[in-house]
């Protein structure tokens, strides 16, 4: 422990309670004991206590907390990814770029940030359908899809999609021909995946905004295909 100092701008910081980046064994056992002893108290009270305590200690700024929550609840979401897909459908050069250098292509539309540092784009074709999971936890490409849905983070999905993807897709109403290969991709701390769904039939001439409206979050995870456009209601059938 001696000699390990964090860089600080202020020199008066004599206390030992800098954020140390190593593991305190004694702290760990005491922490575990405390956590287990309070584990059955209602979760809302436990979260409140944690937030309040960290705020009192100046480790958390509630305004910053509100701002980041607002960002992910209301601003960052699958609409971002839909724009990427719509652009790829409309512009062959962009699609090529997206498949070859997804980080640059996605960044070009402004969708960068935490959990999106290393993207891989997976193109669905008539012969190959891709679907994404994180078996170990819940890795997900936040900048293009926002926060993951509950089912994506759940044990049923994480366990079964790698073993029997067709049955999971069928639960979502997605039935692919036997002649389509299904590839399941496991996200991790290094790689995040974005599925590029097939462009649906009957979308010729649609502009990017309209195309984006057909691209759902679930189609960019790969459990569904993109929506098909409503047929134009021109007069009575």
């Amino acid at each position: 422990m001696a000699g390990q100092h964090d860089d600080h701008d202020h020199d008066d910081h004599a206390h030992h309670d800098h954020p140390h980046h190593h593991f305190h064994r004694i702290h760990s056992e005491a922490a575990d004991a405390l956590l287990m002893s309070i584990a059955d108290i209602e979760i809302s009270a436990r979260v409140k206590a944690l937030e309040e305590l960290l705020t009192l200690k100046g480790l958390v700024d509630p305004a910053a907390l509100d701002a980041v929550v607002d960002l992910y609840e209301n601003q960052i979401g699958p609409k971002n990814g839909a724009r990427v897909i719509a652009r790829a459908w409309s512009d062959p050069a962009y699609k090529k770029w997206l498949l070859e250098d997804p980080n640059a292509a996605i960044a070009d539309l402004g969708f960068t940030g935490a959990q999106g540092e290393n993207m891989v784009a997976l193109e669905n074709t008539d012969g190959v359908h891709n679907v994404v999971v994180c078996t170990l936890c819940s890795c997900y490409p936040w900048p293009v899809l926002g926060l993951p849905p509950v089912w994506y983070k759940s044990m049923p999905y994480r366990t079964r999609i790698v073993r029997d993807p067709r049955s999971v897709l069928a639960e979502f109403g997605t039935v692919l021909p036997d002649t389509t290969e299904i590839r399941v991709w496991d996200s991790n701390s290094e790689v995040r995946y974005l599925v590029v769904p097939r462009r649906p039939e009957g979308t010729q001439g649609m502009d990017e905004a309209a195309l984006a409206g057909l691209v759902t979050r679930d189609s960019m995870i790969g459990v569904t295909e993109a929506l098909t456009p409503e047929p134009a209601a021109e007069g009575a059938p």
Binding site: D101, N118, V120, E181
Partner: peptide
């Protein structure tokens, strides 16, 4: 050369095409 994306990763599982 991590910043150059080549199709490097492999799927964790594949449900193959049948028939056709």
């Amino acid at each position: 050369s991590d910043h150059h994306h080549v199709a490097h990763t492999t799927p964790i599982a594949v449900d193959p095409a049948r028939g056709g």
